[in-house]
Nucleic acid binder design. Structure first.
Lengths: 204, 204
DNA sequence: ATCTTTGTTAACCAAATGGTTAAACCATAA
DNA sequence: TTATGGTTTAACCATTTGGTTAACAAAGAT
């Protein structure tokens, strides 16, 4: 209450609220009123700052994606060895997700709903290509450090093993009969186990 | 046109149409009118056969889940060795997905939206537990066939490597700059590569 | 033939929802 | 003090949407 009429980063407040609601309910499930309530603000303000639901959503999505992309960049454009990359990425990922639990599912879900989002985002940022990683893997295979594997497949394996459990959390919890605590424990173990699992498989 | 007024499996027609629309757009994105159009049927019929959107959706979801569960059961309750299970599951999965491309994403998405669905389904069918697989893995580790690994983690790894690429298809296509054809080719390779990757890692 | 049950349709309805508007508010510069 | 310009609000609007209704048509039962 006692809200001053001064604009103290109303725009940011809206973006935070929109993030929360959109990431939880998706574009279709989210309601403008709910976002307004979450931001403790009049609904008309949403339109004042971001013309439409679509544009507000796009702001949230771009923001979310800009958090995920650098994570993957560590695999793609870092200078360390493949083994180090795997260890680093795997170890960091769990901690990262803990701070953004809805993020992977949100991005995947909305990218499925409208694959064109990828093109739009690809333009904005100088977007990373997998080329470097592919040549790096090929080189390490050549040197006899790694068993033969295509860079693409290894990349897919790394992100699958790391991201999937957080996308399919309810499925895994259901099949494994885990509560929040049990699930968290299992994910904590994966911080080291997953990288061992991968390296075990590819190292000569 | 020239539609007879006879009931020739209208209910099934509706279910098929609903499946198509719900799996593509999700509960929130789907429109009853669109389902009716897809089924080439009057909208009121949807309510005549399945009272509400919610109930129609639940019928579709249960149906979808009943397709996925047996797949996972092959890992859990089959009598073959762990190695054979991995090979079989991996090899079959791609072909299965080709017939139901929206299925994994649909199930995961809706399970995230409402985790209670799992409980409801768990009651209906005599639901499989992971116990058997866990003891099997423990036994093979004991015998020295496999390197030490927990059954839960191995299970998660298997389904992650197999399912994730089909859940995150647009993300992977984007990062790897693949068109439909390139993606399909890569997935075809995975039929054998994924099982080799896993077995490489765990076999002593 | 006629009555009854089941299936089907067009028209309709109330609620929800994204979006608009016009007036009020308030800090600040003139 | 007052004019100004961005900010905020309550009320409003048009459309969409899930759901209902009443009339009607087709078979089967009597």
């Amino acid at each position: 209450m006692a809200k001053t009429k001064i604009n103290q980063d109303t725009e940011g407040q809206i973006l935070n609220a929109a993030e929360k609601v959109f990431q939880k309910k998706g574009m279709d499930g989210a309601r403008m009123q709910e976002i307004a309530d979450e931001a403790d603000i009049n609904k008309a303000m949403l339109h004042y700052y971001y013309r439409s639901k679509q544009l507000l959503f796009e702001a949230v999505f771009a923001n979310a994606f800009s958090l995920l992309a650098p994570q993957l960049n560590k695999i793609i454009n870092d200078d360390s060895s493949v083994e180090e990359k795997i260890k680093n990425f795997t170890n960091n990922h769990i901690s990262f997700i803990a701070k953004h639990p809805y993020l992977p599912n949100f991005i995947i879900q909305e990218l499925n709903r409208n694959p064109k989002f990828f093109e739009q985002i690809q333009k904005n940022a100088g977007f990373p290509s997998l080329e470097k990683f592919k040549t790096q893997v090929a080189a390490e295979v050549e040197k006899g450090i790694l068993k033969p594997i295509a860079g693409e497949q290894l990349f897919i394996n790394i992100i699958s093993l790391n991201i999937f459990p957080f996308v399919a959390t309810p499925l895994i919890k259901g099949f494994l009969k885990l509560d929040d605590k049990g699930f968290k424990k299992l994910m904590e173990q994966r911080k080291t186990e997953v990288s061992e699992f991968i390296i075990n498989s590819i190292k000569k």
